[in-house]
């Protein structure tokens, strides 16, 4: 089954790492998973140019077991505390064992971006290869950090990271009542590609 993508290619997105101040005055850092483990308040800022090529070649990407597992464990912690009301289509799973199993599959895709506030992981966005040369997108922000502009910055960083990694087609499904999520996706150029199912499918041409 071939998916429909917009004719137009999306704009260039900003590549992580970058930082910004959210609508509630919090300093938020957007970083790729596996590229940097937070220690104290020090930020692992890298030059915005020049090191992207090496990062896309796997340097910035390590198995979840590496980094002493700190980054992985922090991410697990975020999902264990995740508000059940914010679950979508069965993810994230409810139990910790399910979360660990699910995260291993997702992170295995190799294209993950996290939002950090100090030492807490407060958001995660991911592209998972669909086996048909495209990627499925999902994004999560913990409830205390929602409605502060973090989702937009996470999307920006994820799509920028996806462009670095050469991703072309990106798609997602969203529950039809989820106006907030759909507005976010539209803002980044996603267009409705399939309305046949329970969930709406949207897609974006990254390059």
């Amino acid at each position: 089954m071939s998916r429909v993508y917009p004719d137009e290619v999306a704009r260039e997105f900003e590549r992580p790492p970058f930082t910004f101040t959210d609508d509630n005055g919090r300093e938020i850092a957007i970083r790729t998973y596996g590229g940097s483990v937070p220690d104290g308040n020090e930020r692992h800022e890298q030059g915005s140019n020049g090191d992207e090529a090496s990062e896309s070649d796997g340097e910035g990407r390590q198995p979840a077991e590496d980094n002493g597992g700190i980054e992985f464990e922090t991410l697990v912690e975020m999902y264990v505390a995740f508000d059940p009301a914010d679950r979508a289509q069965g993810i994230p799973p409810a139990r910790e064992s399910g979360i660990r199993e699910w995260l291993e599959t997702v992170l295995d895709g190799g294209c993950d971006v996290l939002a950090w506030h100090e030492n807490d992981c407060v958001g995660h966005a991911t592209l998972v290869p669909d086996g048909e040369n495209a990627y499925e997108l999902a994004i999560f922000v913990t409830s205390e950090y929602q409605r502060a502009g973090i989702g937009s910055q996470l999307m920006e960083g994820l799509l920028g990271h996806g462009q670095t990694r050469g991703a072309a087609g990106v798609w997602l499904t969203v529950e039809r009542w989820n106006d907030v999520a759909m507005a976010l996706y539209r803002k980044f150029g996603f267009e409705t590609s399939n309305t046949d199912s329970f969930e709406l499918e949207m897609s974006l041409r990254l390059q």
Binding site: G90, W102, T105, V128, P129, D130, E136, S197, E199
Partner: peptide, 15 residues
Amino acid sequence: ERSPMGKIELSQETQ
């Protein structure tokens, strides 16, 4: 069915 991401997707028939 589960999407690559693990999302549950109900088919048209199930719907």
